[in-house]
């Protein structure tokens, strides 16, 4: 009976994962391997292709016809729609140098933030679906999200990445790793550590149902700074850990110590998040006209 409950929990979390996250690993890997005949992603590999593709960044639906050069309807994409007009972020450029690479880089970075903020919202909805999460002290729910969300976002980037680049805009655009490395300092340092992590993480070959459980384990970390009531969080995590362990035995019977290897990734994650936050703080100082999305600001303030 206990195993049945653990399997039911895995199924429940997988359903919530499918409900709240727009691009599954299965679909991303299909796009990356070129199996889906119809939606071949638009490739951004240099400034020119970035400018051409910019209008599509963060769009949910790319115009179906060929990606030939159209007159961009508006430079704003829907990425900033998150949280209503709270912070319409995309398309914010310094008027003076609209066309220069400096402005394009900043606009791209703002689009990344806009998508990240939307992803935070998706993770929040997923967290609320974890049985018992909404019954925790509200302050602890905030703390678990504050410290867990960037780790979750990095894990969710892995399926979109390979050694050569990453999918963005719901899998409609493929941006090359070399292009990202060619951006000026410090933008060029932003994604490289995530590529290194993702290439290794992907060798574990988790599927979406494994990912759903792993994300819940990350969110339910009882050692986050400032938690008021650790006990119930640890109990919830223990149940999800049992479910994850069983799930990995069932779906990866001959993958030795996969459970242990997966848990070890959580220590790598913390270092990547710490470095990421410090880089963003540096960016805020050096980039005069760089704005930080208020939700991301809230999360990163006094984090590490």
């Amino acid at each position: 009976p206990e195993a049945a409950d653990l399997r039911a929990l895995a199924k429940h979390l997988y359903e919530a994962y499918l409900k709240y996250f727009p691009l599954t690993k299965a679909k991303a890997r299909a796009i990356l391997s070129g199996k889906t005949g119809d939606n071949v992603p638009f490739v951004i590999h240099d400034m020119k292709s970035l400018m051409e593709g910019e209008q599509f960044i963060n769009c949910r639906q790319m115009p179906i016809q060929e990606h030939q050069q159209q007159t961009p309807a508006s430079s704003a994409t829907n990425g900033g729609a998150l949280l209503g007009s709270e912070f319409s972020f995309v398309g914010m450029t310094s008027v003076t140098d609209h066309g220069t690479t400096n402005a394009v880089e900043l606009r791209f970075f703002h689009s990344c933030q806009s998508r990240s903020a939307e992803a935070v919202r998706e993770v929040t909805e997923f967290a609320k679906s974890i049985p018992g999460f909404v019954d925790l002290d509200l302050n602890d729910q905030v703390t678990l999200l504050k410290y867990g969300v960037i780790e979750v976002l990095i894990i969710m980037m892995a399926p979109l990445m390979n050694k050569d680049g990453t999918l963005i805009s719901y899998g409609q655009i493929f941006m090359t790793r070399e292009f990202l490395k060619s951006l000026r300092k410090p933008f060029c340092h932003l994604l490289e550590p995530k590529f290194e992590f993702s290439v290794k993480f992907n060798t574990l070959e988790l599927d979406d149902s494994d990912m759903a459980l792993f994300l819940a384990v990350i969110i339910l970390s009882g050692d986050r700074p400032g938690l008021l009531n650790v006990k119930p969080i640890e109990q919830l995590q223990e149940t999800v850990l049992h479910s994850l362990e069983l799930q990995l035995k069932v779906s990866h019977p001959d993958s030795l110590q996969l459970f242990a290897k997966l848990l070890q990734k959580m220590t790598d994650l913390r270092q990547i998040v710490t470095d990421h936050v410090h880089l963003i703080q540096l960016l805020k100082k050096t980039e005069v006209d760089m704005l930080l999305h208020p939700l991301l600001q809230e999360i990163m303030k006094d984090l590490y």
Partner: peptide, 21 residues
């Protein structure tokens, strides 16, 4: 914790139907 206004609102936002049982 007024410092996390948006996170608070996202957590309390019940604009969503409960996930399938």
């Amino acid at each position: 914790t007024e410092r996390h206004k948006i996170l608070h609102r996202l957590l309390q936002d019940s604009n969503d139907s409960p996930t399938p049982a």
